[in-house]
Amino acid sequence: MFVVGGESLIDLVPTGAGADAERVALAGGSPFNCAIALSRLGNDTGFLCPISQDEYGDLLLTPLAENGVAVLLKDRVAAPTTKAIVTFNDKMQASYVFERGADRAFTREGLLAALPEAVTLYQIGGFCPILEADAAVWRDVVDQAIARGATVSFDINVRDKLVDDEAGYRARLSQFLDRAHLVKLSEEDHEWLEPGKSIETHATELLERPNCALVVVTLGEHGSRAFSRAAHGSAPIHAPPVFGDTVGAGDSLMAGILTWLKDNDRLGQEPMAGLTNTELDAMLGFGAVVAGINCGRKGCQPPNRAEVDAVLAA
């Protein structure tokens, strides 16, 4: 099973321009989105995050059930659902202000008990390093997933508005990076983490960590790049016929990359380390189609495998 651990939340998305625009509530959160995208692409997927008893919790459970994602924590929690207030710039790129709640309502014992006995892939959520109390628990979960056979992926997804202790956050982030076999980051993550450093240098430094074998960097409208220990590759975006917005684009791309790696028997530290230029280009191209189809819709609505295959065939 592919297991995604981390936050789910409700995106409160404006329906028009201006500060007074009405907002619609949409199920979201990067790990939540990625879990749904993975399942739509044909992967056996579980989601490891507490779900609130409130009405927004109902809104989160519905798409998980509709898309066949296993909810690994069965008992719902009293804490209110975490919320993200979304705004868009003139390119329809989203930014977020967060109100945290149920995503933190877990215990170490509960998470470890919910983890499947066999884990093919474990993905770390971007909120996991933000607070020390949370990070200590999630590190144990990651270590247990590794002990159960998991390849570990980490979509860094820096949320600087939630970071009150930058030095502590960077230290905790580093501990998760040392556990990850695949690291994905956006150009904005890169610039926040390593201002003034080239992407190539940053990727090389990540690959020098104990377990990292593959680094993926997304560049917005300029596509994406990937670096293995053997090669590097790139791919442009897949532009949909009609553009919606970019919500969930990175999560969809990540799901596409993980699916490509599994389907091509390249999921794992050694196989990923040896990926060639041609393979990296193909991997990113597959992910770009998944992300591009999603961007043709409003909100995060990743494609299913048939939709992706149809675009690739054309």
Rank of each mutant, 00 (worst) to 15 (best):
E7S: 07
A17N: 07
G18Q: 07
P31M: 15
A35D: 02
I36L: 12
A37D: 05
S39E: 09
D44N: 12
L48H: 04
L48E: 02
C49P: 00
P50N: 08
I51E: 03
D58V: 08
V69D: 05
R76M: 08
A78G: 11
A79F: 04
F88S: 05
F98W: 10
A105S: 15
T107W: 03
T120H: 11
I124C: 14
I124R: 10
E132P: 06
W138H: 11
R139W: 05
D143W: 02
D143V: 08
A150T: 06
D155R: 00
D160V: 09
V163H: 08
D165T: 09
A167M: 13
Y169V: 01
A171C: 06
Q175V: 06
L177Y: 00
D178W: 13
L185C: 14
S186N: 08
E191N: 14
S228G: 12
R229Y: 07
H232W: 15
I237T: 10
A239V: 14
A239P: 07
A239S: 13
P240A: 14
G244L: 05
T246P: 06
G248N: 09
I257K: 00
L258N: 04
W260G: 03
W260Y: 12
R266G: 06
A273R: 08
L275M: 14
V289S: 04
V290P: 08
